[in-house]
Design a protein around this nucleic acid. Structure first.
Lengths: 241, 241
DNA sequence: AAGTGGTCTAGACCACGTC
DNA sequence: ACGTGGTCTAGACCACTTT
């Protein structure tokens, strides 16, 4: 007898409930979440079932387990997660020491492409940020970042300049918004005049064009950016499994 | 009291034993591995412990679980795994329909860089393969592939031509060697004369340079390749978690 | 000592595929 | 009907951190 045309195991339902709690901000980034025993009680299941839900959330980098201490909500402020999405690494060993320098920040209306990527209507307000990334004081990356205005109100140059490091850490603490996953599309393009000057390379030098859409909880896109990377000293590293 | 300075849980030891069996060829690619109950008996642990070991091996794409049927050794012949390492996708939807055309195949001695990448001695024999990948009949990728001669004896143009599709499927069935993971390093470079002609683009057109080292069981490097990708119609897609 | 996550076991039952 | 992996439970004990 067919009983369950769309069967969903208990631990997945628990996982969804925990996702809801994360999205609603009940547990904020960096904070300790209730123990497994307590969650088991709250959801009326065994500890093992909670454990499986937490396992999956930890595998997706939404939670971080620390033996003996507890389970925490992942945070962009965590030093180990600071450059989680930055794949650019030195070609020859060495260290990666990025410094962000905001260049511009203005308000605009979403064009067709930005609207499609951010799943908003064309003409909706967006905030655009341009910035330069230096590694060991050498300019390596230009980013142009499109953010839905509704999601990031009051974002100005002053605010950007007051946050020396990660944009995502700023978003997290100022807007309570955590970036969960991203998808990048990488191509090779020639440097245009303006980009060449900023990156201190000759015009037409091949650059990596890295377009990224970043998603928060619930697969909601909240950032679209295009980066131009110099790849003479650095390379886009990727592990394939 | 400190009891275990280097504690290793049981399921990891089981996992290692299973890795040994895979590496030794006791279970060949595509084949069914013994059931969890049987493995539990063989290793003298509970089914749950075997399960955790298999879980990790499945997460690493070494095994594939199929409910109701059993657990199988992952295989490059599996249609779903055929282009597991190829990140190039059409920019505008559409389908990906790669056809491989071998261009050259010769024997050589490993240079300094190839030797370092393949962890062999400079001067050791290597086989070099050059090939062209066409998508919908358009040339998109040139690959130059370095293989340790010891590992791939008797590899010739005739052999390559007799395998229409995946190189890795060939390696697997002819040499019993499975590619487990890879690391890619992506940069933007200008097209040189020869590459430009093959890819039917103008000289100096920016191309993606994709260098890949591929590893088999036990993190043993067995392939080093450099690809040049046209990225006008296709892009290197990457999911960040 | 107490609390957390991590491991291991044993057993029951469910969903899926095959015979 | 049977065998496979998938889920769920309950309980014991281990490893790590803090009090």
């Amino acid at each position: 007898m067919r009983v369950s045309p769309s069967f969903s195991p208990l631990y997945r339902q628990i996982k969804t409930l925990m996702l809801d709690a994360l999205q609603a901000g009940e547990w904020a980034p960096g904070q300790l979440v209730p123990g497994e025993q307590e969650l088991a009680l709250r959801f009326g299941v065994s500890q093992g079932t909670v454990r499986k839900a937490v396992d999956e959330l930890a595998a997706e980098n939404l939670l971080v387990r620390k033996q003996g201490k507890g389970t925490f909500v992942a945070s962009h402020s965590d030093p180990r997660a600071r450059f989680r999405f930055l794949r650019l690494m030195p070609r020859e060993g060495g260290v990666r020491d990025p410094k962000s320098e905001p260049l511009e920040c203005w308000r605009a209306k979403a064009g067709a492409e930005a609207a499609r990527m951010l799943e908003i209507a064309p003409g909706d307000p967006v905030t655009v940020v341009r910035r330069l990334l230096r590694f060991s004081n050498v300019p390596v990356v230009i980013d142009e970042i499109y953010l839905p205005g509704e999601v990031f109100p009051g974002l100005t140059m002053e605010v950007l300049k007051s946050w020396p490091d990660s944009l995502y850490a700023l978003f997290e603490s100022r807007y309570g918004l955590r970036m969960v996953r991203a998808r990048e599309s990488v191509r090779a393009v020639p440097a245009e005049r303006a980009a060449a000057e900023l990156l201190e390379v000759k015009e037409h030098t091949p650059l990596l064009s890295v377009e990224r859409v970043t998603y928060t909880y619930g697969d909601r896109p909240v950032e679209w950016r295009r980066g131009l990377y110099r790849t003479d000293e650095y390379a886009y590293m990727n592990d394939l499994n």
